[in-house]
């Protein structure tokens, strides 16, 4: 999970001259093994309610209104929505008390929209986790597609950033197919629709038609700040507020765009291979996972 500061151990530093099977394996072991994200790539804001002074500076600079602070002082109500966050670190830069820090955590995918929202009042979480919901999603999705998953990707009005990272899953570094997950060309062949973009007025009909053209059992994965909430385009009359205003969504993968490892985690979690880590916006304090 954590980075390896100082040492450049990235496997991509050198690509051997030989092509194909003569060359070195470039594919990472994640999500089966550990990922190596540099510590300098810490972009996920984590809120420590014990340090928060309720200054509200973070909310003022947030370009997508992902942070809401009401009241002031130690009793302030703080809310951070990872579904709206574009991980730009502006809030961390201005936080006067050090309550907001950036971490390299990218395992932020959830099975419910409300788990993407962290809410603190007077230094305490507002709600407790609800394991029942996760169990029900598990029953529906996990054992149906556990061995293999065919995905149709749909851009419902993204900027192209999510397509870049979703496409990267097929590069040698990430090689999605080793996990039994592959992208298919037609909704007829798909188990899941992976949807990016906040659903523009001009794409809504095509999205609905594609969903109807997909045979059941099927489920929908909303990817990126736009796919979850409309992201930077939230508020435009031409863009809806995310995929779940049009289709039922089972899996949310936040990011702007989510890095390929975050997408791998979200898909792996959807298949029931790993546990959801983010509950009510809270990550476990120590990143520890049984591999």
């Amino acid at each position: 999970m954590s980075g390896n500061p100082g040492k450049d151990a990235s496997p991509v530093a050198q690509v051997p001259e030989e092509m194909g099977i003569l060359g070195k394996v470039l594919t990472m072991s994640y999500p089966l093994g550990r990922s190596t994200v540099r510590s300098s790539s810490a972009r996920t804001p984590i809120h420590n309610p014990l340090l928060c002074t309720g200054s509200g500076e973070c909310g003022k600079v947030c370009p997508t209104n992902a942070i809401q602070v009401e009241g002031s002082g130690a009793g302030a109500h703080f809310e951070l929505d990872y579904g709206k966050c574009i991980f730009c670190r502006r809030c961390v830069d201005v936080c006067p008390s050090g309550a907001l820090t950036a971490t390299t955590d990218f395992e932020l995918s959830t099975l419910s929209r409300k788990d993407l929202v962290v809410a603190h009042v007077s230094g305490r979480p507002v709600a407790a986790r609800d394991p029942e919901l996760a169990k029900s999603v598990k029953l529906k999705v996990h054992h149906l597609f556990a061995g293999s998953l065919a995905i149709r990707e749909i851009d419902a009005g993204s900027c192209g950033g999510c397509e870049l990272e979703v496409g990267a899953l097929t590069w040698p570094e990430y090689d999605l197919e080793r996990l039994g997950i592959h992208f298919v060309a037609s909704p007829r062949h798909a188990d899941a629709l992976l949807v990016t973009g906040g659903v523009t007025v001009n794409m809504r009909l095509a999205l609905e038609k594609t969903y109807r053209a997909t045979a059941g059992p099927k489920f929908v994965i909303a990817v990126g700040a736009c796919g979850i909430s409309g992201g930077p385009f939230r508020g435009s009359p031409e863009v809806g507020g995310g995929v779940d205003s049009t289709l039922p969504v089972e899996v949310y993968i936040p990011g702007c765009p989510p890095r390929p490892e975050a997408l791998l985690y979200g898909l792996w979690m959807a298949l029931g291979k790993v546990e959801q880590r983010l509950w009510n916006g809270e990550l476990p304090p120590v990143a520890k996972r049984s591999d």
């Binding site: 092509m19 790539s41 972009r43 991980f87 730009c88 950033g161 990272e165 590069w171 040698p172 702007c256």
Partner: peptide, 26 residues
């Protein structure tokens, strides 16, 4: 294509090393 994408990964990795963000946002 795999070869080109392997090289491309090096470039995005370089961008991440420089900026902390793979695609250079923010």
């Amino acid at each position: 294509a795999a070869r080109a994408n392997a090289l491309r990964q090096i470039a995005y990795d370089a961008l991440e090393a420089a900026t902390g963000a793979r695609t250079g946002r923010g």
